[in-house]
Amino acid sequence: MPYNLHFAVLFSLDFFSHSVLPVNVKLLLLTTSMEMFWLDELEFEIRKVVLDNAVKYEGKPNVKSVMGALLGSQADLRQRAKEVKEIVSKVVKDVEKMTLEAQRSELSDIAPELLEPEAKVESESKELPELPNVDTWQKVVMRLAPFPSGPLHIGNARMVVLNDYYVKRYEGELILVFDDTIGSVEKQVETEAFDMIPEGLEYLG
């Protein structure tokens, strides 16, 4: 728990414990206070991600990209995806009004670690191998079959890039199939994923 949120919760607990209000009112007020503190902290974390996204893309943050980063790294937010998206949209509109220099400056103040330059890795350009017996096929058809439990993750993205390479190389076709047969109690279908996954594919190009 962030320090300021931790302090606020402790303060609230101390205040309500010494209050003469009825217990049910105390609980309601405490729950409301903690929710407000949580939303404030969430918006602060979202602002970091939005600023980072804006700096990386010439000052133009993208709601879909930010949502993918948030829900991909914090699975607990998926249950409140609609609420999170509203906050993201609000922050994106605010950050869009800033210059790239102002975005970079604020990001440097609140999350300087995100501005650290990535180490450059020199690598040779290598061509992927041809598909076996491709000359005997009528058409190259590739398939992406993610489980609809959230937005595309890095494993999905890797497969998309690989399949897309061969589809373009052989003028083929890429088919999206939602595989909702492999779920479990811990991994359930999220209805929002049926929109998030196509949006993620569109963003990847």
Rank of each mutant, 00 (worst) to 15 (best):
D76G: 04
R158C: 03
G150L: 00
S149L: 05
L27V: 13
L114N: 10
P22R: 04
R80G: 09
V95R: 04
V88W: 04
R47E: 09
I87F: 11
A102P: 01
M67S: 07
S108K: 14
L29F: 08
V141C: 05
A81K: 04
Y57V: 03
E124C: 10
A157G: 08
G155F: 12
T32V: 03
A81P: 02
N156L: 09
L100Y: 12
K60F: 07
G68N: 09
Q74M: 11
E118D: 11
G72N: 03
D109P: 00
L152H: 10
I87G: 00
E83F: 13
F44W: 09
I110Q: 11
R104N: 07
L100E: 13
E45I: 04
V140H: 00
K26Y: 08
Y57W: 11
M36K: 15
D52E: 13
N133T: 03
K93F: 08
I154M: 12
V88N: 08
K126H: 07
R80H: 15
K97W: 01
V121S: 12
T32F: 03
Q79M: 01
S33K: 09
E43L: 08
P117R: 10
R47T: 10
S65T: 05
A69I: 12
S33Q: 14
V23Q: 13
M34W: 11
R158M: 12
L29R: 04
G155S: 08
E96P: 07
V160T: 11
T136Q: 05
I87V: 11
R104V: 02
L144W: 05
G150M: 02
P112D: 04
S65C: 13
K82H: 15
R104W: 02
D109H: 06
V134F: 05
E41W: 09
K90Q: 14
V84I: 08
I46A: 06
V66P: 02
L42V: 10
R158Q: 10
Q79L: 07
P151D: 01
Q138F: 06
V88H: 07
P148S: 03
K120P: 04
E86L: 14
R80M: 13
V161G: 00
L70I: 08
E35Y: 15
D52F: 07
E83H: 15
S89W: 03
E122L: 08
I46G: 02
V84Q: 00
